[in-house]
Design a protein around this nucleic acid. Structure first.
Length: 196
DNA sequence: TCTCAGATCGTCT
DNA sequence: GACGATCTGAGAT
């Protein structure tokens, strides 16, 4: 399958990621997810920004303390952890590294397919404003809490591609207010960037 | 019962 | 770019 998008001249979508893909170091998962395709229904996008939460080692992670909600991260890898924030937005994470209760937040996508559907859901025609934030991408792809705890590729899928971070040309992606993020990775101007 | 959330959007400068 | 309002629900007390 060959797909075209605004910024990416051509790419090939390959197989779906396996559950075992997520059974490794959380930071490594965050890096490797860049350039993969996140798909739900007819909508999909290329993952261009991720952030690793190292579970029990990371104060910023929901899994720093085990609660009913964060228990999912302790008990699994390769499942979607979706939570609701600020009374408005959902954020999508994939659990990883079961031993440490890690998870990777998907922060931004490059829209790929179902763009008209995304525009309707987001109530905007501005393509650059469809999936450039964790809450926005959930809204654009129709992802909400009912998918919390679902297995990878059950309802929401992630595909391998032949894209490498260095060949992705992304016109967006700025860092939001810098806080003490330890593990953020993204792609800007064809370059793979990590931020501390 | 209370607090506040690793976001978003509109408004102002 | 900075800042305030938003206003549900999980977790703490």
């Amino acid at each position: 399958m060959k797909i075209k998008s605004m910024h990416i001249k051509s790419m090939h979508i390959k197989s779906k990621l396996t559950k075992e893909f997520f059974n490794r170091d959380t930071v490594e998962v965050a890096k490797l997810l860049l350039g993969k395709v996140l798909k739900h229904g007819k909508t999909s996008g290329i993952i261009v920004e991720t952030e690793a939460y190292k579970g029990k080692e990371d104060e910023a992670s929901h899994a720093f303390k085990r609660t009913e909600r964060s228990g999912l991260m302790y008990d699994s890898y390769g499942k979607f952890y979706i939570y609701f924030v600020y009374g408005k937005n959902f954020c999508i994470n994939v659990t990883a590294e079961k031993k440490k209760a890690g998870a990777v937040l998907i922060r931004a996508l490059e829209p790929l397919s179902g763009i008209d559907i995304m525009k309707k859901r987001r109530k905007t025609d501005d393509i650059g404003n469809l999936t450039n934030g964790p809450g926005k991408l959930c809204q654009a792809l129709g992802i909400n809490k009912k998918f919390n705890g679902t297995e990878i590729n059950d309802k929401i899928e992630i595909f391998n591609t032949d894209l490498r971070p260095e060949i992705i040309k992304s016109s967006r992606i700025g860092i939001q207010k810098a806080k003490d993020f330890d593990w953020r990775f993204y792609i800007k101007d064809n370059k793979f960037v990590s931020v501390r």
